[in-house]
Design a protein around this nucleic acid. Structure first.
Lengths: 256, 256
DNA sequence: CGATAGGTTGAAGAGGCTCAATTCCGGTGG
DNA sequence: CCACCGGAATTGAGCCTCTTCAACCTATCG
């Protein structure tokens, strides 16, 4: 029941639209935007950059000079330990922002890399926005809210890693990604894109590939999920949320 | 060698000083502060609140209305799962800030609770600061930088939980806390306060109390650390940092 | 002096890892 | 259209880290 209420049936399939519409709709879901702001977003999306899979968008420790927005494809933030072990911190989905240099954090605390081929809204206008916050108050608020959301996901991630079993971790991640995809128009409960290899899932959840594989099989056997190509269907989102002790991020009343 | 360079020998024992001096020195290590800002800090610290151990400072989901600064004692941010399992996200040490409602994140994403009796700089003037950012640009920058730092610690925490063994996790946490204490005047390599029960360490690092205990014993047996009352001495900070693959947070060139 | 929180110890078992081999699948070249 | 290739997924077996349970010890405090 919660499933149907939360379902993205009402969310237009943003991906199918023009990129700037995806970004505008998504940002204005965080804070109201002016017409001027809408137009700067349109400009920013005019000539998106194309980047292949497996490319680093920026590197840990490097100055963050180029804010960007993901228009299509998936990426992640990660760190590589000195012995080669990798830890993925979070995922970037279409409509997500990255590399904001403001807030007195000029250096990247983690690297970011593409997981698929991606399309990225250029840096030009976004830099402008960051430089002159007073001209784009709505954009700034939206960006801040998006960042706060991203941080809430990071806390979820800590809980997964610290206190949940492999089974719960995977269920939790799937539900979280399911809800995020729902927000950009892929209804919860239907087949949705999930271009993650089992190794990537393992690097995110602190598990070995082998164990990710076995746990996914269990979830399939129990008919909680099914997979096809690079996509997943959460057959029983509520049951998964129950298993994972998943809580929807409280929607912030957008009172400005 | 790195140890000696990073040692807090140069840092005055801030704890021993007047509370407002601790806070001022700490904040101005993040961004230059004006005299006016110094005086508002002094006011804020004039009548610190006293809170006992084990008290919640704020609760997850509650509106964040009361920014504060910890002047003495330890606290942590945490979340309690529905089945009672706890996960600690990070620790608050003297000089640390919490509960900043700005940045469009009006609701707390986690609870915060005291681990010891603490002394807290009141909300009055800090609220003022948040309301009128233009009057206190330095303070705002400092606060943002402090928050960025806190976030870097959170990423460290994810790496610990996701990719390190119990032995590495504990070494890593100890070194990180050692460096943070060094910054407020407790030299790395000497006995420093560490008022954490083994249960708290377990809740932070995703380990059982029993295993924390055994791992600590191993570290003591190997003469890497020694403990006394609620304090610890990192006998071999470099060796510990090596074990933990610990990296010092890059100091931000304070050009801004 | 009893109460209570925190620390210590032992034993057994589970969850997850490693190693190693095999299969599957989407693409590529012939 | 087929053979082949490489990355990803799958499977089996053994082992090890860490957990759980349960008991016991130790300090501190009213």
């Amino acid at each position: 029941m919660q499933t149907e209420m939360a379902s993205g049936a009402g969310n237009p399939r943003l991906i199918d639209r023009k990129p700037h519409e995806l970004l505008w709709r998504r940002l204005s879901s965080f804070a109201p935007l002016s017409d001027q702001e809408r137009s700067i977003i349109r400009q920013t999306c005019a000539a998106p950059g194309q980047v292949r899979a497996g490319v680093e968008l920026y590197v840990e420790g490097e100055p963050l000079s180029k804010p960007g927005a993901l228009l299509a494809g998936w990426a992640c933030r990660l760190r590589v330990l000195s012995d080669g072990r990798r830890q993925i911190f979070d995922f970037l989905l279409p409509g997500d922002l990255f590399g904001h240099p403001a807030r007195a954090e000029p250096l990247a605390a983690a690297s970011a890399a593409t997981l698929t081929a991606v399309s990225i809204a250029g840096t030009g206008c976004l830099v402008e926005m960051v430089r002159e916050p007073d001209r784009f108050p709505g954009l700034c608020r939206a960006w801040a809210a998006a960042q706060a959301r991203q941080e809430a996901y990071l806390l979820n991630h800590v809980v997964r890693l610290g206190r949940q079993t492999a089974y719960e971790r995977i269920a939790h991640l799937l539900v979280e990604l399911g809800h995020r995809l729902d927000e950009i128009g892929f209804p919860l409960g239907s087949f949705v894109p999930m271009p993650l290899t089992q190794e990537v899932v393992g690097d995110a959840l602190g598990l070995s590939v082998v164990h990710v594989n076995r746990t996914l099989q269990q979830l399939k056997r129990e008919r909680l999920i099914e997979t096809k190509a690079a996509s997943v269907r959460l057959i029983e989102p509520d049951a998964l949320a129950e298993i994972a002790d998943f809580r929807l991020p409280r929607r912030v009343p957008s009172t400005g």
